[in-house]
Design a protein around this nucleic acid. Structure first.
Length: 590
DNA sequence: TTAGGGGATAACTG
DNA sequence: GAACAGTTATCCCCTAA
């Protein structure tokens, strides 16, 4: 059976969107970067209303105002913080009030809160965008998504001029058109990728394209309110917003060994928190002390929950789980929205702003029940002579003893589930404690820090400094070089001398490799003015900065100095401070 | 001068 | 416009020896 949807091309789907004709994609070229004083020299746009491209000059402000005024939704790249404010400043005086700002950059990453948004949700060619993007420039994003991208950049000094030769104008128009076109493609990618999210929210959300722009938590809240017919409202009371429910979170078992080989099985309670919610009815507080569930003298919970009937939110959550499981099985992309709803409900229930789903007892009881799950599993495994060598929240690594098979361990896991469910008011047959992966080598460096090789000879690295976004460029480069060797040897450890040689060769080629990218907030956002990040913000402004730790040069730093790429030119190898890089590589040294 | 604790910060795991 | 807790590493600041 061919699904009817497969006859719709992406572009048709974009054009079928109920509010597409309210959208305009635009980009501007300016004579400076200061949003308060920059002049808009050229304006380029694509209107879905008229299905036409436009290019306008700075003298055509009235036309710019007219075309922008005719569209309710303004799509751009970084237009929330750059293009929009510049058009509105006193030099340009374009009125953009009451418009919906659709910022293609903000869809991926929330610059204000320094938090990834949809970049960790969007999968493309088997990996998330967060994993594939080295930076968040429009061009980089376009390249990853396979859009045609022009080579090289225009010389921005051209926008300081006030008159241009026909040849220069031709170059500017071409450049502007391409930027608008890439932004348009990115916008259409989002519209297509998140199209099925519309199914779960109300029309107001769709009108504002909130189902694409908002955080995962906010989308889920909208969806739950809409589907469970709860009032869609937020907590306004500033005092109530600060309420912190008592919640001890997940249990993390410290690694019991530093290294293990043989058969290490990673067991995992699938969708632990969602299942706890609907198996224990945690959104439905009871008032009848006799029939209410209070942990059955097995789980440690503070609330009393109804046992006569599963609640509205719990039933909805259960439906979402099974619908998502069915979609996932046939690789239907509609699984994503449901997965997000499922996984963020716990977070929503612990956040007072999400008024209709917030509960002071529910999240703490959920994590308490969760901790009991993993501690009980550990107990039972150990009763069977199986060592539990590490665990985190909903999962654990066990080391199989001689003569025991993975299937034997699975039987024990099945019994663990039965035991746990015998104390729940609404046990559900879909709840599983199952094998997620089998490892044959495992290095446990600490809580949330480990590496290992699985049955498919693949390398897993969790939490180590080297995989973090603020790792030194040098560390990242060397790790990239070592990875194929690790895979072929099925070992992560190397001689110190070997790594020393590579480090030496690389830093002599390029000193700036020792640098790290610092992602800093506005200077005023810091509690501690003396902190390194605040110093960087004060000197270089908000955003991303590549700085090179060294002994002598640079305006920021105390025990260490931090030089810019320019300053770095007068440094020598002996000035550099390599301790961060060494620390990143330490786990890979014998 | 050094060692080490405490606080702030970023970025991760689940 | 708005998700949660637990954990690591890094760096600054301060105090004790």
């Amino acid at each position: 059976m061919v699904k009817s949807k497969s006859f719709i091309t992406d572009n048709e789907r974009v054009l079928a969107h109920p509010y597409i004709h309210d959208c305009i994609v635009y980009d501007i070229e300016t004579d400076g970067l200061d949003v308060d004083t920059a002049n808009c020299k050229f304006f380029g746009a694509y209107s879905y209303k008229y299905q036409k491209y436009y290019i306008m000059h700075q003298d055509e402000k009235e036309q710019i105002q007219k075309i922008m005024g005719e569209h309710r939704i303004h799509v751009g790249f970084n237009n929330k913080w750059f293009d929009g404010p510049i058009l509105e400043n006193h030099n340009n005086n374009i009125d953009l009030t009451y418009k919906i700002v659709f910022d293609c950059l903000a869809v991926l990453y929330d610059m204000e809160r320094h938090r990834p948004n949809r970049e960790s949700l969007i999968e493309f060619n088997g990996k998330t965008l967060a994993e594939q993007l080295d930076n968040r420039k429009l061009k980089t994003i376009a390249e990853v998504l396979g859009f045609p991208v022009s080579k090289g950049d225009i010389d921005y000094r051209i926008f300081k001029q006030d008159s241009w030769t026909p040849g220069e104008l031709n170059e500017i128009y071409k450049y502007l058109f391409l930027d608008v076109d890439i932004t348009r493609r990115l916008f259409e990618f989002y519209l297509t990728y998140f199209d099925n999210f519309r199914e779960y929210v109300d029309d107001d959300n769709i009108k504002k394209l909130n189902y694409i722009r908002s955080s995962a938590g906010s989308f889920s809240y909208s969806a739950f309110c809409h589907m469970a017919k709860l009032p869609f409202e937020f907590e306004d009371d500033p005092l109530k917003k600060l309420v912190k429910p008592e919640n001890h979170g997940g249990f993390v078992l410290a690694p019991q060994v530093k290294y293990a080989e043989g058969t290490m099985v990673y067991f995992d309670f699938s969708s632990l928190y969602p299942f706890i919610y609907f198996q224990c009815n945690l959104f439905s507080h009871g008032s009848n002390g006799d029939t209410d569930w209070n942990g059955d003298n097995f789980f440690d919970v503070k609330g009393n929950y109804k046992t006569d009937k599963r609640g509205k939110v719990e039933s909805l959550l259960r439906d979402i789980y099974y619908k998502r499981a069915a979609y996932k099985k046939v690789k239907d992309p509609r699984q994503l929205a449901l997965k997000i709803m499922m996984n963020s409900l716990y977070g929503i229930s612990g956040s007072p702003i999400f008024k209709s789903l917030f509960d002071p007892l529910t999240p703490g009881d959920c994590t308490s029940i969760g901790r009991k799950h993993i501690s009980y599993a550990k107990e039972v495994f150990e009763d069977h002579g199986i060592k539990v060598i590490y665990g985190d929240t909903d999962s654990c690594f066990i080391q199989l003893p001689e003569g025991m098979s993975v299937a034997d361990a699975q039987l024990i896991a099945d019994q663990i589930v039965k035991d746990l469910q015998s104390h729940m008011p609404f046990p559900d047959e879909g709840f599983k404690f199952k094998v997620d992966e089998v490892f044959h080598k495992l290095w446990l460096f600490g809580k949330k820090n480990y590496a290992g090789f699985d049955d498919h000879q693949q390398l897993t690295v969790k939490g180590l400094p080297i995989i973090k976004g603020d790792a030194s460029l040098l560390g990242q480069l060397i790790f990239k070089q070592l990875k194929p060797l690790m895979l072929s040897r099925q070992d992560i450890k190397f001689d110190r001398h070997f790594i020393e040689t590579i480090i030496d060769a690389e830093i002599h080629k390029d000193l700036t490799l020792v640098g790290r990218v610092y992602n800093v907030r506005k200077p005023g956002d810091y509690k501690s003015v003396s902190s390194l990040h605040c110093q960087i913000a004060q000197h270089f402004g908000e955003g991303l900065h590549l700085l090179i730790p060294n002994k002598t040069l640079g305006a920021v730093g105390r025990s260490k100095k931090y030089a810019t790429v320019d300053e770095c030119k007068s440094l020598t190898v002996s000035d550099l401070i390599l301790d961060k890089t060494w620390n990143e590589l330490e786990p890979f040294i014998k």
